[in-house]
Write a protein that binds this DNA or RNA. Sequence first.
DNA 1: GACGAATACGAGCGATCACTCGTAATCTCC
DNA 2: GGAGATTACGAGTGATCGCTCGTATTCGTC
Lengths: 200, 200
Amino acid sequence: MPPVRRQARGERRIADVLDATLALFAEVGYEKTSTNAIAARAGMSPGSLYQYFPNKEAIAEALSQRLVEELRAAHTTAFGEADVTGLPLAELISRVVDPLVAFNVAHPGAKALFGNAAMPAALAAGSRPLQSAVTGRVAAIIRARSPELPLPDAERTAMVAVQIVAALMGPIVAAEGDERAALIAELKRALVGYLESAER
Amino acid sequence: MPPVRRQARGERRIADVLDATLALFAEVGYEKTSTNAIAARAGMSPGSLYQYFPNKEAIAEALSQRLVEELRAAHTTAFGEADVTGLPLAELISRVVDPLVAFNVAHPGAKALFGNAAMPAALAAGSRPLQSAVTGRVAAIIRARSPELPLPDAERTAMVAVQIVAALMGPIVAAEGDERAALIAELKRALVGYLESAER
DNA sequence: GACGAATACGAGCGATCACTCGTAATCTCC
DNA sequence: GGAGATTACGAGTGATCGCTCGTATTCGTC
C-alpha cells in the first residue's frame, strides 16, 4: 500500500466528500446514508468517490478523524489547561460544555458519529476516537482535581458524564433559542450535581 | 378494516413474532433486523409473517405496545403511588430506577425501541409510547413533589432525567456483576444530584 | 508535446431488503 | 362432513444498496 501521490484537486474532492457525508449524517443518520447519495451531494460519480475511499466505513472513519481534530482545536483554544484544578466546578463545566455545544450546533451530524451505539462494530476504530478522545480528556481533568480517586472510578465517572452530555446533545441541537438555552442550563446543573457528589 | 377474527393459533404466532423481533433488535438493532430474519427466527415463512402485520413498522409498534404494558405492570407493582410525595428523594429514585433496570436487563433490545432517535420518523407513534409513557410518569411525580414548579419546567426536568436514564441503560445492560452495580449507583447519584437541585 | 499518473465518469453487478401472490392445508361452526 | 374463514407456505418482484470496471479526461513533469 504505497501512499498515493495526491494532487490538490484530489484533496479538495476528499474535503467535499466529508462535507457531504456530514450533512447527510445530520439529515438521515449513518445507516440510511447511501454512498451514491454522498457522491451525488459532493458533485461526483460513485466511481470517483471510490477512488478516494475503499468503502463506506472508511468515509465515516475519515470524517470522524477530521471532527476529532476540529473538536480538539476548539477545546484547547477554549481554556488553558493549567488552571483546571483551581477552577470552581461550575465554571470548569461551562468551559468544557460550551465549546462542545457550539461544536455540535455547528456540525449537526457529528452526533451520528458521536453517540451512536448502533454503529457497525467494525467501525469502533473509526467512531471510537471521537467518543474516547472526549472521555479521556474528561477523565484526565477529574484525576487532576481528585488525585485520591482510584483510576477506574475516575474513568467510570468520566464515562457517565460524557454519556449524560451525549444524551442531551440531541435535544439541545434540535431545540432553538430559549428552549436550547434552558436545556443547556439543565445539562450543566446535572453535571454539577453529579460531579460534586463524585468529588467529595 | 374489520377486526380480523383470530384463532388461538394466530395469537400464539403473533407472540412468537414479537419474541423473535425483540431478540433480533437486541442483537443487531432495528435497522439491520430484516423481516425475513424475523420470520425465520419465529419459525414461519415471510408470507405468514405478513398475514399478521402489514409492514415492518407495525411489528415494532406492536412490540413497543407490549413492552409498555409490561413496563407499566412492573412499575405499578413496584410502588404504591400514594406515598410518592413523602419519600426521600434517593429512596424514590431507587424505587423507579430498579424496576426499570431489571426490565431492561430482562429484555435487552427494549432499548432499541426506547432510546432510539434513529427510528423512522413515522414510527413516532410506535416508539413514542415507551419513551413518553415513562416521561409522563416522571413528570407527574415531579409535579406532585414540587407543585410550585411551572409545568413546562417540570416536563423539561422529566425529559432530562429520562434521557439520563436512557443514556446509561446501554452501559448498564452491557456490564455485568460489580461493574453493573457500580454503574447503577452512578446513575442514581447523578439523578439525585440533578433532581435535588431542581426541587430546591 | 508527450508520457505516466491521477482524476473522472456512470452503467451496471451481485446481494439484500421489504413485501406479494398463487396455492394449499387446517380450523371453526353448523 | 362440508363450507368458508383462517393459517401457512416460499419462490419471486421491484427497489435499493455498496461497490466495480472499462474508458475517457486532465494534471504534473521533462
